Simulated assay, not measured.
Amino acid sequence: VASFAKRSDPMIEPQYQGRVWLTASLSDSQLTIQPVTIKDEGCYTCLYETHLDGPRSSTVCLSTYGKCLF
């Protein structure tokens, strides 16, 4: 979806541009998806590399709910 390197701006995959924002730091990174669609449902993993501690990761899962309007 998105990536970030210390010496560059966040890079957003083309299909997510305009709906996804990445605020990245080693202490508090945030991925914002707005508006959320049913296609966005799933698990997202943040993987970051540090030279001192090695790789670290965290995963969050997004479920979408809504009314069916038929």
Rank of each mutant, 00 (worst) to 15 (best):
K6D: 03
G66Y: 04
V20L: 12
G42Y: 02
T32V: 14
P35F: 07
L69P: 00
P35L: 09
E41G: 09
A2Q: 02
L69Q: 10
S58N: 08
P10I: 04
E13A: 15
C43Y: 03
Q17C: 05
E49F: 14
T32D: 07
Y16C: 03
T59R: 13
I12R: 01
E41N: 10
S57A: 14
C46L: 15
S27V: 11
S3I: 06
S57Y: 13
W21N: 10
K67N: 12
P14W: 02
C68S: 11
F4E: 01
L26Q: 08
S57M: 11
A24T: 04
T37H: 08
E41L: 00
T37M: 05
A2L: 02
E13Q: 07
S3P: 01
T32M: 09
T23F: 13
D53C: 13
P35Y: 04
Q17Y: 07
A5F: 06
D40M: 08
C46P: 00
Y16K: 04
F4D: 03
D9K: 12
E49W: 14
V1C: 07
G18E: 07
T59D: 03
S8M: 03
Y65I: 02
V60R: 08
D28Q: 12
Y65S: 04
S27H: 11
P14T: 07
R19M: 10
A2V: 05
